[in-house]
Design a protein around this nucleic acid. Structure first.
Lengths: 126, 126
DNA sequence: AGGCGCATTCTACAGATGTAGTAGAATACT
DNA sequence: AGTATTCTACTACATCTGTAGAATGCGCCT
């Protein structure tokens, strides 16, 4: 499930608040994004075709709901990035995260803590 | 500097071995990718226009070199992903890496170690 | 009944992308 | 020199993306 940039914006809005009508999606878009109403409709239609969202008629109006979870979409996008820009392996990415500066020292520490935590506290439920 | 999927493949080949002629780039492509020679040329031309690679004539033949570093391209791609799929913040990404399963436990431990290391060993040269 | 406002579906259209064929120039082989 | 090989520069073309206008339909108010 590959989403384009514009589609991500729509999906982000939908994940944040749903079900939602096209009008509501429009309002949910980040400030600064001023698409015509029909642009949103077009996007939503395409997303429906892609089966990324569902459409249900409420009388004359369509109400949309995400069909793919944010989690799934993120996983997929993440995978794509790794495949395409990091030799498809986590190794280079891990290295990148540690060495380059996408993370502030603080965030690195935080991530380290979370990971530590996660791998330490092993053997519980779910 | 936004690279498309196909462009990444070309750049990956170039970063691996450069300078290189179109023919050499072709050979450097991952097994399974069988583009026509002219396809590669087209890509290279577009990359030159984008100023992502340089082109120098050696007699009748062009030799290409990356103009943008892999590091920079990675940073940019990474940033895009975060902006578009993770609310533009590292927080959600960090959470994602810790909670979801893009990383094997082993890799998590590894990353944790690297980060720990990096943040601990603070205050050295370079 | 006529009109206002909002929703819907269609159609459009330029620029980006993936992929490559053609024709002519340069080079190399015999 | 004649022919085979290899480059390069152009052109092509189907899709996909981003953006949206136009025409048309439905409910409701006066």
């Amino acid at each position: 499930m590959k989403l384009t940039k514009a589609e991500w914006q729509i999906m982000n809005a939908l994940w944040e608040k749903h079900p939602a009508t096209a009008r509501q999606v429009m309002e949910q878009l980040p400030a600064g994004v001023h698409w015509a109403y029909t642009t949103i409709k077009t996007m939503l239609t395409r997303l429906v075709e892609k089966e990324a969202v569902s459409e249900a008629k409420q009388g004359n109006t369509s109400v949309y709901d995400p069909l793919v979870s944010q989690r799934k979409a993120r996983l997929s996008a993440f995978r794509s990035l790794v495949d395409q820009a990091f030799d498809g392996a986590m190794g280079p990415l891990v290295h990148f995260l540690a060495e380059e500066e996408p993370l502030t020292p603080k965030q690195k520490k935080e991530l380290a803590a979370l990971l530590q935590d996660e791998t330490t506290r092993k053997g519980e439920s779910k």
